[in-house]
């Protein structure tokens, strides 16, 4: 797909637009050398979308994800979440923004080792809700929903398999009913069966209207998204509308993505 076709220009918020960036730049300095990782990105994400960010190593995928989520601050440009310009928030305001609107799923899961699975979820949930009984019930319901048996709820993360831990991580991300979930290679450290299980959960969540932005370098994983953004040298050079995932990894969808990635030089 030629670069001219990329829909990256957004002028005003559309009614269902969730997140947009204007001239987003991120530069890292190391030893006096400046590295421009993200260059003037104008992106808009729509509510309910499952957006996948792909690109080669060092292209700036994770940097973009963490900038969009308010985990990191842009060097230049603006990020608007609904009506709010989050690029102007300080660290504590960003933390409050994250707890209220975002959920995170990391490759290494990053559950707290010294807490049980349930406590890991509640440590996030109780940040937003003061109703302990309600939030505990919600946590248990979600844990059951992602297929974690009750016996696992009071286990420590080190006592779980990788897939189980990642499912617990997804529950933690969902507990505060975030507007958007940011997932950084959520299946990167999992075997095939565990990956499918995690992706099935994410797909199901998305079907319920949950917006997701996911970074991946795996094509099979990317097929779960309805939109794929391709990043190269800090610039979005491809934007593919795949359409909603219907539960089947059929060849047409696969071929479309394959062709797109081939065009991108992947």
């Amino acid at each position: 797909m030629p670069e001219s076709n990329i829909s990256i220009r957004v002028i005003r918020f559309m009614p269902n637009q969730l997140l947009r960036t204007e001239k987003l730049c991120k530069t890292f300095s190391s030893g006096g050398v400046q590295q421009h990782v993200l260059k003037n990105l104008d992106i808009s994400l729509t509510e309910g979308d499952f957006t996948v960010i792909m690109g080669s190593s060092g292209s700036g995928k994770s940097t973009l994800l963490y900038a969009l989520s308010g985990m990191d601050k842009p060097t230049l440009g603006e990020i608007h979440f609904e009506e709010q310009n989050i690029s102007r928030l300080n660290n504590d305001q960003l933390a409050i923004f994250r707890r209220n609107h975002c959920g995170f799923v990391f490759q290494q899961v990053h559950l707290l080792d010294n807490m049980s699975v349930l406590d890991n979820v509640l440590a996030s949930g109780l940040l937003v809700s003061r109703n302990k009984r309600e939030i505990a019930a919600k946590a248990e319901q979600l844990l059951a929903k992602v297929g974690l048996e009750e016996t696992s709820w009071r286990k420590f993360p080190s006592q779980l398999s990788g897939g189980e831990a990642q499912r617990a991580g997804i529950v933690r991300a969902l507990i505060n009913s975030p507007k958007i979930i940011f997932a950084d290679e959520p299946t990167g450290a999992l075997n095939s069966a565990a990956s499918d299980s995690v992706l099935d959960i994410m797909t199901a969540v998305n079907r319920n209207g949950q917006s997701i932005v996911m970074v991946t370098h795996d094509m099979k994983t990317a097929l779960r998204g309805n939109r794929v953004l391709y990043l190269r040298d800090g610039v979005i050079c491809g934007d593919l509308q795949l359409g909603a995932f219907d539960g089947e990894l059929h060849s047409a969808r696969h071929e479309k993505l394959k062709a797109f990635l081939a065009d991108m030089g992947w």
């Binding site: 933390a95 010294n114 996030s124 505060n176």
Partner: peptide, 15 residues
Amino acid sequence: RREFGILKATGYTTL
């Protein structure tokens, strides 16, 4: 450090 990082990521403020 890692634990505090996770907590910050999930929305805990410095204070």
